[in-house]
């Protein structure tokens, strides 16, 4: 197991290294001179030259990339002309917009994104697996039909429409909920939950249908297996056949998919964050992209990539834990 995790970690590092090369190239592919972007629109050529020196933009490309990696691993010192600014590891440089450390900006934004991802995944899993189980075991019932319709509608509707609909219904028309404003979990857990409710519902609905479909097909497949027939032939009740024998095998693929999805939510829930004004990483990425704040863009992509890679390792470990026949090597 330890050996397996070490090997997977090494593989993950290799993937991230490749990703970093590709992402770092945006500095040179993106339109505009990084020094001019960093300095701002009203800089004179002298100031731009000064910034260029500060950011070592005159160095060969490979050296700049090396310094970028060094910053992530060991931190980096920047001179702002008058003072020396130390950027702790992991350092993704300074924002072109306000000279803030990119790492700090990310850390500031992480709680909102994590709140959204955890809650939305919970909604998607509960609604999706519940609907999937119902349609596998009690197909045609009224609850099953309503839930299946709901998950399909949720998936088919873009989040900026379903989100708007939810806002209008629950905040404007029924006035059951306040218009969401992000309240940190550490500040006021109750308000945090009330305010996150609609974002969770919107993103959870969007993801739910695929879990419903996967759960349904996986459960039907497992129920058709020979070992279920064995226990049926020994008088085990149908309900127990499902809970004791079929469920475990049937949820394995659901767990694996949800872990991978969870990773991508850490950078991918852009629309939901924008829709509900959540100060998360997705919203940060949108802002950074429109203002060509390259260090922030690079950092967000690296963080998202790391989350996806880790989530995939977790997914494989969970899958192996659910199915003891899978040996991790």
């Amino acid at each position: 197991m330890t050996g397996y995790l070490l090997r997977r970690a090494a593989g993950a590092l290799a993937v991230l290294l490749v990703l970093s090369v590709v992402v770092y190239a945006t500095f040179y592919i993106a339109p505009g001179d990084p020094a001019r972007l960093a300095c701002g629109p009203r800089c004179n050529p002298g100031q731009i030259a000064q910034v260029r020196a500060q950011l070592s933009l005159g160095d060969p490309v490979y050296l700049q990339y090396w310094h970028f990696l060094q910053g992530i691993v060991a931190g980096h010192d920047y001179s702002t002309g008058t003072a020396l600014l130390h950027c702790d590891a992991p350092c993704f440089g300074l924002s072109y917009q306000n000279n803030q450390q990119v790492t700090d900006m990310l850390i500031e934004r992480l709680p909102a994104t994590a709140s959204l991802a955890v809650g939305a995944m919970a909604v998607a899993l509960l609604l999706g697996t519940g609907t999937g189980l119902l349609s596998a075991l009690r197909r045609g019932g009224i609850t099953e039909r309503v839930l299946t319709w709901l998950t399909l509608a949720g998936t088919a509707t873009p989040v900026f429409i379903s989100g708007l609909g939810l806002l209008m219904l629950f905040c404007a028309y029924l006035a059951w909920l306040p218009f969401p404003t992000y309240v940190p979990l550490t500040g006021d857990p109750e308000q945090w939950a009330w305010n996150m409710l609609l974002p969770w519902a919107a993103l959870g609905l969007l993801e739910s249908a695929k879990y419903a479909r996967l759960m349904r097909s996986s459960m039907l497949e497992t129920l058709a297996e020979d070992h279920i027939r064995t226990f049926r032939a020994y008088g085990v009740a149908e309900r127990k056949l499902v809970t004791r024998h079929a469920l475990r095998g049937a949820v394995a693929p659901v767990i694996a998919l949800s872990a991978a999805d969870f990773g991508s939510m850490f950078g991918g829930a852009v629309l939901t964050e924008m829709m509900f004004g959540l100060p998360g990483i997705g919203a940060l990425l949108v802002h950074a992209t429109t203002t060509l704040d390259l260090p922030v863009v690079v950092a967000v992509v690296m963080v998202t990539g790391t989350a996806v890679v880790i989530a995939n390792i977790v997914a494989d470990v969970l899958y192996a834990a659910a199915d003891r026949r899978v040996a991790l090597r």
């Binding site: 297996e225 020979d226 027939r229």
Partner: peptide
Amino acid sequence: MVFQDPLSSLDPY
């Protein structure tokens, strides 16, 4: 009842 295929006829988990 004893079934034909002894591998698939037992719960693998």
